[in-house]
């Protein structure tokens, strides 16, 4: 009796076992690779451990790199395609189930991470994932081509360097005075769009003292590439001292910082709208 032309080729009897062996080998190798990745390249994994959110991202990146490592190592030996598998419903179902499970797991895991504390991302003007407890409010103001930072709870002082106290929950209100920018405090694991007329709220909990990089992550014009700076996380005493010093330094412009925007000032507000063009020249 002749075989039908589109019939599935006979699968080797050990195909299922082979697939199972691959999965088991992957799991075992991943379990071995993950701690090795953490030990040997953990310090290189972005974004760093300057904040709780940053540490969580390092953890995620570490285990993802851990389960990828066996695949990466196996690729050189797997470049040659195997025999084609056609009309094999078992393989098709397995493929759909596995890939769907992976996608749903990543979606669920991502949602869980976001709902914990926002994962360092901007949540818009009405954040859902709000950490409990007191928080230091800082308004991050993007302007072509520099970020400045206003501290409403410290008398509206403003600085062109982001200085934060260690082990503190910080509520960042990110906005822009002109075009779209993106506030990216790399080692803190914070990235939030800075849009004109929008108050984009992000949360971060600082850890130990140190420095971090801030740069714009949205192409914003001529000097976008130069729109970077260093920030500092300092201990509580140093932060108080810095704030006290800043109040003295910027005392001469405090009346303008405190004035309502309608009267030509620019007080802290959750929405920082650009002033109309008033060029006389």
């Amino acid at each position: 009796m002749a075989a039908e032309p589109n019939a599935a080729p006979a699968r080797p009897s050990d195909t299922t076992n082979h697939g199972m062996r691959v999965v088991v080998a992957w799991l075992v190798l991943s379990a071995i690779a993950t701690p090795l990745v953490a030990i040997f390249v953990g310090h290189l994994i972005p974004p760093g451990n300057a904040s709780t959110q940053g540490t969580e991202q390092v953890f995620d990146n570490t285990w993802m790199l851990g389960i990828l490592t066996p695949v990466i190592c196996a690729v050189p030996g797997a470049v040659v395609d195997g025999p084609p598998l056609r009309n094999d419903s078992q393989i098709q179902v397995l493929w759909i189930v596995i890939t769907s499970t992976m996608v749903l797991f990543l979606a669920g895991f991502g949602t869980y991470e976001l709902l914990q504390n926002g994962a360092g991302g901007g949540q818009g003007p009405n954040p859902i994932a709000v950490p409990t407890g007191p928080k230091l409010q800082v308004q991050v103001i993007g302007q072509q081509w520099q970020f400045t930072y206003r501290y409403p709870s410290l008398g509206n002082i403003e600085s062109n360097q982001l200085v934060l106290p260690a082990d503190t929950d910080v509520e960042l209100h990110v906005t822009s005075l002109d075009v779209i920018h993106s506030f990216w405090a790399y080692e803190l694991g914070v990235k939030a769009d800075a849009n004109p007329g929008t108050d984009n709220v992000a949360f971060v909990r600082t850890k130990g003292t140190g420095t971090f990089h801030v740069r714009c992550a949205e192409l914003c014009g001529l000097w976008h590439g130069y729109m970077y700076n260093n920030g500092r996380v300092v201990d509580s005493a140093q932060f108080k001292s810095w704030a006290s010093q800043a109040k003295k330094i910027y005392a001469s412009i405090k009346p303008y910082m405190d004035k309502p925007e309608a009267q030509g000032g620019a007080p802290f507000g959750h929405t920082y709208l650009p002033a109309p063009e008033r060029r006389a020249g």
Partner: peptide
């Protein structure tokens, strides 16, 4: 020789970084 346009952010109204600020 130009007229006033106004600052968008009054933070820049204070000179800094030069001798004596």
């Amino acid at each position: 020789f130009d007229g006033a346009s106004a600052l968008r952010n009054p933070f820049y109204a204070r000179p800094q970084g030069m001798v004596g600020n």
